[in-house]
Structure formats: C-alpha cells, structure tokens
C-alpha cells in the first residue's frame, strides 16, 4: 500500500511540475490541462481511492503554488474526481473511449466555469465571447491530450483493453 502511495505521489508531483512550469511557458492560446485529464483517466484505470488520492496530492501541490484562497484547488480537483466517478458508476461505461472523452469535455467545462465563478466573486459571472472561444479551445486541446494518454494507457495497461472491440476480418 505504501509503495503505491509513494509511486502515486511521485507521479502526481511530476504532473504538477509539468502543469505549473512547462505547459504555461509554451504560450499556447489555450494551455493543456494535464492534471484534469490525468484525474479523469485515473478514475477509468485505477481504483476510486487511488483517483481521490491523486486529486488530493495534486491539489495540495497546486495550493502551495497558487495565490488563490486556500482550498480552491483541492475542492475543484476532488469535485471533478467525485463527479467522474459518479458518472462512470451510474451513466457511462468505464471501458469506452467516447465516454472518457465526453467526460473530459464536460469536466473542462465545469473546471473553467468554477474558476470563472471564483475569479468574479462576489460579482455574478459574465460569459463573453472571448471566454467561450477559449473554453472551446481548451476542450479541444484537453480532448487531444486525452486521446494521446488513452492510447498510451492502452499500450501500458489492460484496464481499457478487455472490452475494446477490435474488428477482425474472418
């Protein structure tokens, strides 16, 4: 168990470092949200407890680097993990690329709206054209990242493989 805790902590530390330092430095118009994609993926390929632990570790690291009110990061990351878990348990299969991608899109929407709400408090949120356009771009880059990570996971783990339908010609 402790080995798993150490491994998850190290991997999440690496993810956090890439998310904080590397991806924003690329100056893309919409930065990839690697942390969000990894969390959605973790619900699909790991246990719920491991996924929640990932969210807590990521949240705690981000909090140290964030100048927002304490807890804002931990709350949204754990919320996303819980929502994805609920969706997978009740509405989606956890063995489908499409449900995984759809959840990435929905969680990107929730994540961005959450930060828009936090940023504009106590004023009501204003969704303008620039925000909507950026949101679409973020959904696209996160989905692209999700696809890449999905196929990487497919090669490394058999969590998805059991029901991936491969058309065979007989």
């Amino acid at each position: 168990m402790w080995l798993r805790v150490v491994v998850i902590s190290l991997v999440m530390s690496l993810v956090a470092a890439v998310q904080i330092a590397f991806l924003p430095a690329l100056n893309m118009s919409a930065t990839i949200n690697l942390a969000l994609v990894i969390l959605v993926l973790s619900v699909f390929v790991a246990s719920r407890r491991s996924a929640l632990f990932c969210a807590l570790v990521l949240g705690l690291i981000f909090e140290a680097w964030s100048f927002w009110s304490f807890g804002a990061m931990i709350v949204i990351l754990t919320l996303i993990t819980i929502l994805v878990s609920l969706a997978v348990d009740n509405f989606f299969t956890n063995k489908s690329l499409y449900s995984y991608l759809l959840l990435i899109v929905v969680m990107t929407l929730i994540y961005e709206l959450y930060w828009l709400l936090v940023a504009s408090l106590p004023a009501p949120i204003m969704i303008d054209q620039a925000f909507a356009w950026l949101l679409l771009q973020k959904m696209a880059v996160n989905t692209g990242t999700g696809i890449v990570l999905f196929y990487m996971t497919l090669g490394l783990s058999n969590s998805f493989q059991s029901v991936i339908l491969i058309k065979k010609k007989y």
Partner: peptide, 11 residues
Amino acid sequence: LARDVISRDAV
C-alpha cells in the same frame, strides 16, 4: 518559476 496556475483574467 511558472506562469500562474490559473489565470485570473480567464483570457
């Protein structure tokens, strides 16, 4: 060390 983790201006 980094750009802000979350952009306040959302743009």
